[in-house]
Design a protein around this nucleic acid. Structure first.
Lengths: 335, 335
DNA sequence: TCAACTAATGAAAGCGCTACCATATCTTCA
DNA sequence: TGAAGATATGGTAGCGCTTTCATTAGTTGA
């Protein structure tokens, strides 16, 4: 009942420690017979190499940090699955943190993460400051942005095209004849900003006025969607359609609309974004934009793994996937 | 642009390495003036202690492993949030793995986790074999079961009382006058088994026959719920109520029922378990049992942290929370 | 037959930190 | 005033691995 070290094993086998190390690392310069003997002893004694010692000399932990904005948004659950599965298939583990869209929280946990000796970092939908980027560079921690982007040299990302998706949503609503279209805005992140930009451009292109109350304050979750929608519809009866920054927010909005005694889409059309699980089964099946979450997680993780294996930091890689309109029942023609 | 070591800092400050170490670890035996000087240099040079070296000598990584069954089930998202937040507040990070209710996958990732030198382990809703338990003991890795239990000495857990919750569900359905009540069974885990047991006992207590087709094969996710329900209702028109092992499965069942052109609760009453997010907003708001997911994650993590801090392994601690019936619209009186 | 390999093993050093023990100075108080 | 304790600092060893360099034996080829 003790914890064996490599040295213990070497003594039991009557060889030098380095020989045991060679066996563990599949070095070919070990006689078959010696190898078997050592493996037998390792198995018998239940020996496992010490992770910390190994990391210390190899300067690698095979751990990747993942920072997501909101653990309970199914969008991130799906993304995370892509990340974890890809990492595990390559011998890496994932440490997850939650930024809650709050930069100071994000920074705090980021530091915690970096101090843990992670080999690389995945930042999902986080507004990264130049400070943070510099920090990461100084500490030589390779990173990849997920579902958001920054156009800076050597900042790599895997995203779906939010501007394209945003147009899909706005176009669809506008073509249905709506004119007073509100937009439930998200936090200041590229994904959210580009969706918003697409909305504005399409409104302009179609000569539709954007009254200032069309644009909500920043909303980051279901509850926010509920609050903002309630206020909006109470004060402005002219709104006939709402574009939500994402499904999570849209679900809050839907709840609010129904609680106000209104109907979707008869009184208000509602479109979301992301196509998270369950939106199909909501009281009013939600029309939305499908975001390839899983694929995005996989692509970003693979990109990071490439960076880790090739050692050079001046990569330039980006993956931009496409979104798709999913028509369900939450939008209708205006009469 | 180099990575400074503790020794570098000590040389720059003109002190011994150990003095720098003392500053980092807040040892009180350092003159205020010396401390400040060292801290200044640390800040200037952007020094960060090497995690691996520290772990090696302290024999601690401050990393906890978390094994969940299904990353995309919102039940686990909520639980995970409780775990991560509690861990982080205490300086620990979480490495997450997914077992997918598959013991061989679970074991594989468990080994990966253990090899990573985690300090402790949280096993959520996983059917743990005696082998695994022995492994964990041999390697001296403290662990806590989450949302499932095993009645063995020194196996600690944090759960809600699944038997109690199971009774709540069965009782409710039976009191509504249903007699032909099907049960969508989950995998062989205590949580799932106890809910099932409660169903059987309540049926017996009320002299209701359990025909063998009432009991489904094992279902582990939404898709499974859909498949099993479709088959069940096509073949057996006498079923008037379905108890699903959890909401995720219930949502699949709901979809199936609607796809068959039937109504909930008019044709079939449906009750879930867990009260995951969104169930309130489903086409048919789901009647279910609320499981205190977040609190369970917090309680289990705290328990593990206690074990890690107190060093002794022969703990006996268990937390058993209560469930609550949430009546919504998916069940009705039989006529 | 001898140089030039490959195969198989080991000795020593070191990764970056902390534990343990030692030393030196400074207080405190009977 | 001197013994006992608190304060402040350092030397050495070692955590459990891998890297680097040596060494020896066996094999190949012109």
């Amino acid at each position: 009942m003790k914890n064996y070290t490599l040295k213990d094993i070497s003594e039991l086998a009557g060889v030098a420690p380095i020989t045991v190390s060679r066996v563990i690392n599949n070095d070919k310069y070990v006689k078959a017979e010696t190898r078997e003997k050592i493996l037998r002893i390792i198995r018998e004694k239940g020996y496992h190499p010490n992770f910390a010692a190994r990391s210390l000399v190899l300067k690698k932990t095979k751990i990747i940090g993942l920072m997501v904005a909101d653990l309970e948004n199914p969008f991130f659950s799906r993304l995370t699955r892509g990340v974890i599965q890809t990492a595990e298939n390559n011998g890496y583990n994932i440490i997850t943190c939650e930024s809650k869209f709050d930069n100071s929280i994000g920074k705090k946990y980021l530091n915690m993460l970096m101090d843990k000796g992670i080999d690389g970092l995945l930042l999902a939908n986080m507004n990264v400051s130049t400070d943070t980027i510099n920090d990461l560079r100084r500490r030589r921690i390779p990173f990849v942005l997920l579902t958001c982007r920054m156009e800076m040299p050597d900042v790599n990302y895997a995203i779906a095209d939010d501007y394209q998706g945003g147009r899909l949503a706005a176009d669809y609503i506008i073509k249905l004849g709506h004119k007073n279209i509100a937009f439930l805005k998200g936090p200041d992140i590229s994904s959210s900003n580009e969706r918003f930009l697409a909305y504005k451009r399409e409104m302009e292109k179609n000569n539709l006025e954007i009254k200032d109350y069309f644009i909500s304050e920043e909303v980051i979750n279901q509850y926010g969607g509920y609050k903002v929608t309630t206020k909006l519809l109470k004060e402005h009866k002219d709104i006939t359609a709402i574009i939500a920054i994402n499904d999570f927010v849209a679900i809050g909005a839907l709840e609010a609309i129904l609680d106000l005694g209104l109907s979707v889409p008869e009184n208000v059309s509602l479109i979301g974004y992301d196509n998270i699980n369950f939106t199909k089964l909501l009281k009013v099946p939600l029309t939305t934009i499908n975001y390839p979450k899983y694929r995005c997680g996989v692509a970003g993780t693979k990109m990071l793994l490439n960076m880790l294996n090739s050692k050079k930091l001046n990569f330039k890689e980006r993956v931009i996937l496409k979104n798709k309109l999913i028509v369900r029942k939450s939008c209708s023609q205006i009469n």
